[in-house]
């Protein structure tokens, strides 16, 4: 068995009177691409934020590489939702990526050439090296997402938490990001990705967490991503669409 990268135990988060997620419990082995899937309001973003101590939790324990989050903070990279920052900020794409390195640079010390080179390389890896000096508001949605991803890349973390990196991006960006995720996996990184598009889950992720306020199922995609579990996660309305997907998949595989 692989070592555990992220272990969530008995996690309950509540706002006001309403619990948002409860009794969430799962382990994620190292080196997996993990999709967190669930309907709107199922508490996906809340789960990520609770893992990172950004919101208070009512109960529960989170361990990252066997330690509490704040002790392994440096091994975690977070890709927030795109709307979370001010894109009018006067910085260019390269600056944003370089921010991922600030921790390594340290207090007060200036950015040196090697840092900028590392940032450029990360931009090249996400395929937008030529946009390094573009002001960030002039990037398209997909390019902004790639910039965020490049920033996560230079952090050189071992566990990445990504909040809907594939939401509202063009097809080319989606392909590029997925390609990158696979590369990261090949390098032994673990990525936990909130994902909204059911059709592509089996193609992108080898591990899923089906979440609807509590964990419906978690495990290897081929074991867990079943029609029955999806129905438990999404409810009856999805069945039709789902059966169609299933049929498509089967035909593609030639069964």
């Amino acid at each position: 068995m692989d070592p555990i990268a992220l272990s969530v135990d008995d996690l309950t988060v509540a706002y006001h009177r309403k619990p948002v997620i409860w009794d969430v419990e799962f382990d994620i082995p190292q080196g997996k691409l993990v999709g967190i899937v669930g309907p709107n309001g199922a508490g996906k973003s809340t789960l990520l934020k609770a893992i990172m101590d950004l919101i208070p939790r009512a109960s529960g324990r989170v361990e990252v590489f066997g330690k509490p989050y704040h002790q392994s903070l440096h091994r975690v990279g977070y890709v927030p939702q795109r709307e979370s920052v001010d894109w009018d900020f006067p910085v260019d794409a390269l600056d944003v990526v370089t921010m991922g390195l600030y921790r390594r640079v340290g207090w007060c010390l200036p950015i040196r050439k090697k840092h900028r080179d590392a940032a450029r390389e990360a931009l090249a890896r996400v395929g937008i090296a030529d946009l390094a000096h573009r002001q960030i508001s002039q990037l398209s949605g997909g390019q902004q997402q790639r910039t965020f991803l490049a920033r996560a890349l230079v952090q050189d973390a071992d566990l990445y938490l990504m909040d809907e990196p594939l939401a509202a991006v063009d097809a080319a960006t989606e392909a590029a990001i997925v390609e990158l995720l696979k590369q990261m996996q090949a390098d032994g990184k673990t990525a936990v990705v909130i994902h909204h598009d059911l059709q592509s889950v089996p193609d992108y992720f080898d591990h899923v967490v089906l979440l609807n306020m509590r964990v419906v199922a978690t495990g290897r995609t081929q074991d867990v991503f079943t029609n029955e579990n999806l129905q438990k996660t999404y409810g009856g309305r999805l069945t039709l669409l789902d059966e169609a997907t299933e049929a498509m998949r089967r035909r593609e595989r030639g069964i």
């Binding site: 009177r17 309403k18 309001g41 306020m213 129905q231 999404y234 999805l238």
Partner: peptide, 19 residues
């Protein structure tokens, strides 16, 4: 509630009030 979540998963998150 758990059963409700499974049975009506699509609308459940808006309505569940476990308290």
């Amino acid at each position: 509630w758990e059963l409700y979540l499974i049975r009506y998963a699509d609308i459940a998150p808006q309505r569940v009030d476990r308290d």
